[in-house]
Amino acid sequence: EDNEEPDPLPDNWEMAYTEKGEVYFIDHNTKTTSWLDPRLAKKAK
């Protein structure tokens, strides 16, 4: 069984939802937002 907990978001990142219910990510370090999960970006490298 694969019950892995997702990795926590990096420091100062926040997950948020648009009015349409779409997930996006806020990077408080750089005051930017991203559609890409920063956790996935790390694994892709």
Rank of each mutant, 00 (worst) to 15 (best):
M15R: 09
N29P: 01
E14K: 07
P10Q: 04
K31S: 09
Y17P: 01
A44E: 14
F25E: 02
D27R: 01
G21H: 10
G21A: 07
T32S: 10
P8A: 11
T18K: 04
P8I: 08
Y17R: 14
Y24R: 00
P8H: 09
D37Q: 02
T30L: 07
K31Q: 12
K42V: 14
L36H: 06
D37T: 01
Y24L: 03
N12L: 08
T33N: 05
E14G: 07
E19L: 09
R39L: 02
R39Q: 03
D27L: 00
M15V: 08
W35Y: 11
P10N: 04
E22I: 03
P6T: 08
E19N: 13
P8T: 11
K45E: 11
T18E: 02
D2L: 14
L36P: 01
L40W: 08
E4G: 15
D11N: 12
T33R: 03
K20T: 10
D11M: 11
T30M: 05
D37C: 05
W13S: 03
H28V: 04
E22Y: 05
T32V: 09
D2G: 15
E14T: 08
T30S: 15
D27K: 00
N12A: 09
E19K: 11
H28N: 04
N3L: 12
E14M: 05
H28A: 04
D11R: 13
D11V: 10
G21Y: 05
A44Y: 15
S34G: 04
D11L: 14
N3T: 13
K31T: 05
N3R: 15
R39M: 02
N12R: 10
N29L: 10
T32H: 04
D7A: 15
D11T: 14
D7S: 13
D7V: 15
P6D: 06
F25M: 02
H28F: 06
T32M: 10
D27P: 00
K45S: 14
R39G: 04
E1Y: 15
K45Q: 15
F25N: 01
Y17C: 12
N29V: 10
S34E: 01
E14Q: 13
P8Y: 07
F25V: 00
D27V: 00
W35F: 09
E14A: 04
K42P: 15
W35G: 03
E22F: 02
Y17W: 13
P10H: 02
N3V: 11
T32C: 12
D11I: 09
A16K: 09
T33S: 07
W13G: 01
E19W: 06
P8G: 11
K20L: 10
P6A: 12
D7E: 12
E22M: 06
H28R: 07
T32L: 07
P8M: 13
K43T: 11
E1V: 13
K43L: 09
D37S: 04
I26T: 01
K20I: 09
T32K: 06
P6W: 14
D37P: 04
E1G: 12
N12E: 06
Y17E: 04
K20Q: 13
A16C: 06
H28Y: 03
R39K: 04
N12T: 07
M15G: 04
N29C: 08
E4P: 15
P6S: 12
L36C: 15
N29G: 11
V23P: 11
K31A: 09
W35Q: 05
D7M: 12
K31N: 14
S34R: 02
T33W: 01
N12S: 07
S34L: 00
D27I: 00
F25T: 00
D2S: 14
N3K: 13
K42S: 15
P10M: 08
K42T: 08
D7R: 14
R39E: 02
E1H: 09
K20W: 06
N3P: 09
T30Q: 08
E22A: 07
I26C: 06
P8V: 11
Y24T: 00
K20R: 11
G21S: 07
E22V: 06
K45V: 15
P10E: 05
Y24N: 00
N3S: 13
W35E: 02
T30H: 09
T18L: 03
I26G: 00
E19G: 09
N3E: 08
D37R: 08
P10K: 03
E22N: 06
I26Q: 06
K31C: 11
P10V: 03
P10A: 03
D11S: 15
G21C: 06
E19D: 11
W35K: 03
D27Y: 07
N3H: 14
K20C: 12
E1R: 15
D7Q: 14
E19I: 09
Y17D: 05
L36W: 10
T32Q: 07
E22R: 04
E22D: 09
G21D: 08
T33G: 01
Y24P: 00
G21T: 01
E19Q: 13
I26A: 03
L36E: 09
K31L: 08
E14N: 07
T18W: 01
Y24W: 03
L36N: 07
E19T: 13
E22T: 06
D11A: 12
T18I: 00
T33Q: 02
E22S: 07
L40P: 14
S34Y: 05
D37M: 03
E14L: 03
R39S: 05
N12W: 06
D37W: 01
R39T: 05
R39W: 02
E4S: 14
S34C: 08
A16R: 08
G21F: 05
P6L: 12
K42D: 10
D2Q: 14
M15H: 04
K20G: 12
R39P: 02
N29Y: 08
K43N: 06
T18N: 05
D27G: 00
R39A: 03
T32R: 06
D11K: 11
N3A: 09
I26H: 02
K31P: 01
D37E: 02
K45R: 15
L40V: 14
F25W: 09
I26V: 12
K43V: 13
T30D: 06
L9S: 04
L36M: 10
Y24D: 02
K42W: 15
R39V: 03
P6N: 11
Y17F: 11
L36D: 07
N29D: 09
L36K: 12
S34V: 01
P10C: 02
Y17A: 11
D37K: 07
T33E: 02
V23Q: 15
H28T: 05
W35V: 04
E14S: 09
K31D: 05
P6H: 15
G21R: 08
A16M: 07
K43G: 14
D27A: 01
Y24V: 02
K31H: 15
D7G: 15
N3C: 11
D11C: 10
I26E: 02
K20V: 10
E22H: 08
A16F: 01
T18C: 04
L40T: 12
T30F: 02
E19V: 10
I26L: 09
